[in-house]
Write a protein that binds this DNA or RNA. Structure first.
Length: 550
RNA sequence: UGGGGAGUAGCCAAGUGGUAAGGCAACGGACUUUGACUCCGUCAUUCGCAGGUUCGAUCCCUGCCUCCCCAGCCA
């Protein structure tokens, strides 16, 4: 059963303290993505944190698009982000856009100018960089720093009306060019950009910078706890400065936590976009991608991702979570949900020589032995079947429990068979096995005469239905050196393997996203893009654990 | 060599003056018509290092080491 309440973490402790002390009455959080890419599992951590922080104490959470940079943003992304948040089963209280506050932000900027706390600066980007100083030496004040309020007001108004070229002027806060915190060295508040915004069109020729816009957005929405990642930690003094100097009635507080990193993958929009643009993968929703869309298509469930997000915790130290933890949670979730079935990925034909030709038996099979509510089904059995190539070895090592000459195994849901003969082609490759079955060993008959060490799965040859299986491995092997700098050089060439095999006949017309556990292989999910009626395509979600190794 | 953060097991992560939670992984064993699942057991005499305060320190103090972030008109 899924825990109703999320695990404790330092931010939640702060929230609880604030509630207890009366510092806040109602908790309001927000998830503030910029619509410039698809969401990934790292965002899922943030989504779960923000929504559950509020949910657990009867608060509210807004989904807010931080769309202050029209050159990078796109409507496609605002759609996909909403879809992903909804899919994770979170309902936002308000759908907000930073662009809806552009007028208010402008007014606050004017207020700063009037207070003598902001000025229009004509320095070029390059000049500004040079005058900013370095980590160890102070910056120099801009020659435009002491323009009169009236001149600043006039210039800023004309920036707004589109009178000036991109990059020719900016509005800057007047703080402290000697601050050891570079963010406080007269940061840019507004830049000129004649780009077309996906929502406001060409109304604006100036757009606010993150450091100015974000605190105002939070304050406007009454956000109490503004949660972001570690790299914004030293922006906090500026965040507080903006809220205070702009005289915002609400005072949001910013808290920072460590973003999620996982082994064997990359977790930045930039890198993910590179994989998409260079066609290393099929798109943002390629099942190998750590995007929400990719994980969904792969077959991960919202529950598994939410449980994962809870269990990894929230802290301030940079860390790398083992991908096997994510895998654990999807196995755990699918265990009781996925229908058990038999699939042969690499077929080896077996003829049961003492089984009557032409005869077909319909055997009983549980749909999920661990969840009897899922019922049973009938599966056909006759003289010729397919088993997995891996389940036969002519010269097996010790402790090999499967088929080998002279050995007897159980066919799941059917009979014991013994391998009597191995048929090979001219090249010496095993192409067929001749076996004998024992009618007394039928499954469910209660036979206890003797035991076998191994049980293998199979599919009846004449009823087997052809299917495509897409097997995945990590996109990147990051146990090598230097992966971070040049991850494209460390791509796993085996990240995708497409093979043709067989499934039970009943799986001929599966629906997109249907989940199965193919015995002794793993959990599979029907691909929503590639699978068509009559031509099923299964994605490997995650394989079963196995302690067996040759 | 400025500023801001972080160091607890292989990986996450609680605890923050009273003698190291939990999860993942791993490894034993039991069970087994999935080499799965489940169950049982093992897995930090020690919390980056060195001093100090204290009856007692992962927790307080001092010094040091290591790692991450900051010099976009990105977010």
């Amino acid at each position: 059963m899924e825990g109703a309440l999320s695990n404790s973490n330092f931010i939640k402790n702060i929230v609880m303290d604030d509630l207890e002390s009366g510092k806040v009455r109602e908790v309001i959080t927000r998830f503030p993505p910029e619509p410039n890419g698809y969401l990934h599992i790292g965002h899922a951590k943030s989504i779960c944190l923000n929504f559950e922080l509020a949910q657990d104490v009867g608060g509210k959470t807004n989904l807010r698009f931080d769309d202050t940079n029209p050159t990078k943003e796109d409507e496609e992304y605002v759609k996909s982000i909403q879809e992903d948040v909804r899919w994770l089963c979170f309902a936002w209280d308000n759908l907000c856009f930073a662009s809806d506050y552009f007028d208010q932000m402008y007014e606050r900027a004017v207020l700063l100018i009037k207070k003598g706390l902001a000025y229009v600066c004509d320095l070029s980007a390059e000049e500004m960089r040079q005058m900013r100083g370095t980590l160890t030496s102070p910056g120099k004040e801009s020659p435009y720093r002491n323009r009169s309020v009236d001149e600043n007001l006039d210039l800023f108004d004309r920036m707004k009306s589109g009178e000036f070229a991109d990059g020719s002027k900016v509005l800057r806060a007047k703080i402290d060019m000697a601050s050891p915190n570079l963010n406080l060295r007269d940061p840019v508040l507004y830049r000129i950009s004649h780009a077309t915004h996906h929502r406001t069109g060409n109304v604006w020729a100036i757009y606010p910078m993150y450091d100015f816009a974000h605190p105002l957005e939070d304050a406007i929405e009454g956000v109490t706890h503004s949660v972001c990642t570690l790299e914004f930690e030293d922006h906090r003094p500026l965040y507080d400065w903006v809220v205070e100097q702009c005289e915002m009635p609400n005072r949001p507080r910013q808290y920072e936590f460590a973003r999620l990193n996982m082994t064997n993958t990359v977790m930045s929009k930039r890198k993910l976009k590179l994989l998409v643009d260079q066609q290393v993968v099929d798109g943002w929703d390629d099942p190998r991608m750590p995007t929400i869309a990719g994980l969904r298509r792969r077959g991960y469930t919202p529950e598994s991702i939410r449980n994962f997000a809870r269990e990894i915790g929230v802290a301030k130290s940079n860390s790398v979570v083992d991908e096997r933890m994510l895998e654990y949670f999807v196995r755990e979730d699918l265990k009781l949900k996925a229908l058990r079935s038999m699939a042969i990925l690499r077929p080896l034909k077996v003829v049961i020589t003492n089984y009557p030709e032409g005869q077909v038996e319909w055997l009983d099979a549980e749909n999920n032995a661990e969840n009897p509510e899922m019922g049973t089904r009938k599966i056909p059995f006759s003289r010729e079947i397919y088993i997995e190539q891996d389940d036969f070895m002519e010269s097996p090592p010790p402790k090999y429990f499967r088929l080998f000459p002279g050995n007897e195994v159980r066919l799941k849901h059917a009979y014991f068979i013994r391998c009597e003969e191995v048929i090979k082609d001219d090249s010496g490759r095993v192409v067929e096995l001749r076996c004998m079955y024992d009618p007394e060993t039928k499954s469910g008959s209660g036979f206890t005469g003797r035991k076998v060490k191994g049980t293998i799965h199979w599919v009846d040859a004449s009823f087997a239905y052809p299917a495509e299986f897409r097997l995945y491995e990590p996109l990147i092997n990051d146990d090598e050196e230097g992966v971070d700098e040049d991850f494209l050089a460390h791509l796993n060439p085996q990240s995708l393997e497409v093979i043709q095999g067989y499934v039970e006949n009943g799986l001929k017309d599966v629906a997109a996203m249907d989940k199965f556990q193919f015995f002794r292989h793993g959990y599979f999910s029907v691909d929503p893009k590639l699978s068509t009626p009559g031509k099923p395509v299964f994605n490997l979600v995650v394989s079963l654990k196995s302690s067996f190794q040759i």
